[in-house]
Amino acid sequence: MAPLLEVRNLRKTYARHDEPGRRVVLDDLSLSVSSGDVVCLIGSSGSGKSTLLRCLDLLEPIDDGVIEFRGREISDPAVDPRVVRRDIGMVFQAYNLFPHLSVLDNCTLAPRKVHGLSPAAAREKARDLLARFGLDEHVDKHPDRLSGGQQQRVALVRALCTDPALLLLDEITAALDPELVGEVLDIVRSLADAGTTMVLATHEMGFAREVASHVCFLDGGRIVEEGTPAQVLGTPEQARTREFLRRVLPQA
């Protein structure tokens, strides 16, 4: 079966604002994600994890390479990014909820305006999902009244309300304190169990080991090592992977 998402030789650079030349953020990177996969991207800050996710959602123009989604090249300039994003959900580190809308309105905005659901249908679906993730009492509140963990769960629901074929999660627990990380990861775990295809950047190694079907270690904009969680996190072959894991897993 053809993979759901296929990235080949992706290159991304940013202009340096203090000096000439360009900084290479993603360098000849290739990645393949099949339906039902849970791909965890690990690596230190600046290794290119977030940029990769942003490129996949076409939020950043790429410098070279090919991104294919459902067998179609979406890095083609003739492709309308909005059509692609209808089927891809993205959750950000800082939640990025709309502060002027209630929780429910945050979750129904795209289903109503982009996917053409009737307001009643969109509301019903959002209430359903919010209830499933323990947010039913917060439906009519505004995001700023909620805790970080609750906000991030709402952000996840907002992304799920459009039935995405692929979910991109960009360090969604990095801004949360440890107590709240669990409640967000529980949702991701249940989504993984339900067969949701996900690509997630994370610093939670234990979580990656548990839910990932595939772990990629990024360094310097390249995938240095990839494989099953047991391989990459348990018996890494590359010196750089071992060094990184030594730093993030002091007990190992």
């Binding site: 030349g21 360009r22 900084r23 600046g46 290794s47 390479g65 083609d76 310097g220």
Partner: peptide, 19 residues
């Protein structure tokens, strides 16, 4: 952070040129 790897050794691919 990838500060090395100067852009000099990179040539845009055919696909990129077409794009």
């Amino acid at each position: 952070m990838s500060t090395g790897a100067p852009a000099a050794d990179w040539r845009p691919s055919e696909r990129e040129l077409a794009r």
